[in-house]
């Protein structure tokens, strides 16, 4: 993580205001907190502001949220710069957050990084078509399915350099690829189907235990 500053003034929009729908939503959020504690709503509001501005928080959004909550601007800036989930610079339509923590690195996150560098460029660089940007983040908590990336709201797991390229191609073409593991696997269940409790019959009763021996440790991921 590096020093986080607001984006340069030439990319900052000149104004920001919540849309009518978001204003209603924001008021409901603020109303959740007792009188005098409106500042507690700062994170939800900043998040909604980030969504409305296309994935990042402009300076005017910070000021708008501060005014709405009766907070000093610096207090909201403190929150926005503290949490890395708030992007302070413009991002692409598809913002790739690439997990670069140990399990993912052991499983090939470095290759994914190369793909990002090749396809998108440096971190927080937005492609000329405005579609992609990427950033390396700390553990996203899907180590079982390492390596993985988060693109906007969804996790794309069990990636290889090829499958990430394929993903980016699909996004680029306007398709919506299926989130989750990109290999034959249900969530974080063993690859290729269940290896335990295979005798369990959902219709009741127990199937006879399969005669195949248990696979040795680690084989399930192949």
């Amino acid at each position: 993580m590096a020093v986080r500053r607001l984006a340069a003034s030439d990319v900052q929009p000149s104004e920001f205001a919540f849309s009518a729908k978001n204003v209603t939503w924001a008021k409901a959020q603020i109303a959740k907190f007792p009188e005098g504690r409106q500042a507690s709503a700062v994170i939800p509001l900043l998040w909604r502001a980030q969504e409305q501005s296309g994935g990042w928080v402009p300076q005017k959004a910070i000021e708008h949220v501060a005014d709405m909550l009766g907070m000093a601007y610096i207090r909201v800036l403190e929150v926005a710069t503290f949490y890395t989930m708030f992007n302070l610079e413009p991002v692409g339509r598809y913002h790739v957050q690439l997990c670069g923590t140990t399990p993912c690195v052991l499983r090939g996150a470095e290759d994914l990084k190369k793909v990002c560098h090749k396809r998108i460029g440096g971190q927080f660089h937005v492609t000329p078509d405005g579609k992609f940007s990427w950033v390396e983040v700390e553990c996203l908590g899907a180590c079982v399915n390492a390596p993985m990336v988060q693109i906007n709201y969804d996790f794309y797991e069990d990636l290889t350099a090829d499958s990430l390229e394929d993903l980016l191609d699909q996004f680029s073409a306007g398709a919506e690829p299926k989130p989750g593991p990109q290999i034959d696997r249900q969530f974080s269940a063993p690859v290729g189907g269940p290896t335990t409790l295979t005798s369990f019959n959902t219709k009741g009763g127990t199937k006879k235990q399969a005669a195949t021996p248990k696979p040795p440790l680690g084989e399930g991921t192949k």
């Binding site: 993580m1 020093v3 207090r75 800036l77 710069t81 503290f82």
Partner: peptide
């Protein structure tokens, strides 16, 4: 005058006024 604050965090925490 709540004008000073600490932006960023950890090693990158900085004391500053708003902009």
């Amino acid at each position: 005058v709540p004008e000073m604050g600490a932006t960023g965090r950890g090693e990158d925490m900085e004391i500053t006024t708003y902009l």
